[in-house]
Design a binder for these strands. Sequence first.
DNA 1: AAGATATGAATGAATGGTCATTCATTTTAT
DNA 2: ATAAAATGAATGACCATTCATTCATATCTT
Lengths: 199, 199
Amino acid sequence: MKRNKPKYMQIIDAAVTVIAENGYHAAQVSRIAKAAGVADGTIYLYFKNKEDILVSLFEEKMGSFVGELENKISKISTASEKLHKLVEMHFHHLASDHHLAIVTQLELRQSNIELRVRINGVLKGYLAVVDHIVKTGMESGEFNPGLDVRLARQMIFGTIDETVTSWIMNDQKYDLLQLVNPVHQLLINGCGYSQSTLK
Amino acid sequence: MKRNKPKYMQIIDAAVTVIAENGYHAAQVSRIAKAAGVADGTIYLYFKNKEDILVSLFEEKMGSFVGELENKISKISTASEKLHKLVEMHFHHLASDHHLAIVTQLELRQSNIELRVRINGVLKGYLAVVDHIVKTGMESGEFNPGLDVRLARQMIFGTIDETVTSWIMNDQKYDLLQLVNPVHQLLINGCGYSQSTLK
DNA sequence: AAGATATGAATGAATGGTCATTCATTTTAT
DNA sequence: ATAAAATGAATGACCATTCATTCATATCTT
């Protein structure tokens, strides 16, 4: 019903820009409307309320990303290489859209908890991909078979997320994609000294 | 001047409780005042504004923790054991005060970016401890000498933080302290298969 | 020692600015 | 001509902050 209405996407894109450039608190509905070239009231023809804009934004922008991710990763055989691709795609996705990166890493997190629970729902798909990689690695013998899958997932997601957030907070002064290899290396081998330091 | 005024701490403790139990948005100044057994106006004798309560809260509760951390860790010789102690103290600090854990992991993050920058200032001390551990390990040969210290810090902090946040979001259904060993193990050896799986 | 005076901590009702949301009306499409 | 979509001014709820006033305690005066 709403997916192929042009105004729907117009409003979402305007919201990303307004929130990224002015911050969550200054992102009044009327400002988003103006940026979308639409009347305030029009917003409410497409979204239940202001929060719904935020969740929809995340659903639209992240939902398709997870699809792509699943697709690309399914074509790779080793767990280590799957993980490498995950890190690369995650970094690329956000490095190629600074506005979206600011919104997801900083602004969206200012939402209340009820909203964050809904956002977590969207994240579930992403985390399922991580879990799958971990399980694959454990079964193939690439990864430690004694791993706690939940913990491994939390390490992988926590590390990637913290890396991106730091990058954003440092005004994207360096190239995020250059960190793909070292981050992947850290996830596989940790801080400890390891024989196989080459990818 | 303000540190030994009883009302100051009274208000901070009330704020932790009110915010943890009702959420940031429902934590009106008047509610905090009532919980502290104080008039609304009194708050403004001790705090510049509402945000100042939040930052002060974090400064008070976290500042002393970093001091303790530095102290304990300086008495340990190996980097791996230092890291183990860091994880243990971090988990213990939050597992022993659920209200504080909710406030730091969920509620405090709803603050605006200006405020988060101030919060990051407080965190700097904590992150310096992490950096120090990483450098120690690299010098002693315990850790991979090719590590990027910033990335290693982000992995360590990101993993710990994500683990605590997940624990909170799952209503603290399991014992956080039981995760100290596996998390430490993950940080040192990563997901990969490693000879030394015992601590 | 008793009263007079000063201090500043504490109070809480009132204020004022902000914005999300609504809806009567207009415009566009079929 | 009818329905559907869009408009944007008006509304009203919300809540941080203010400030005139109170009150308990300390200090001074005789």
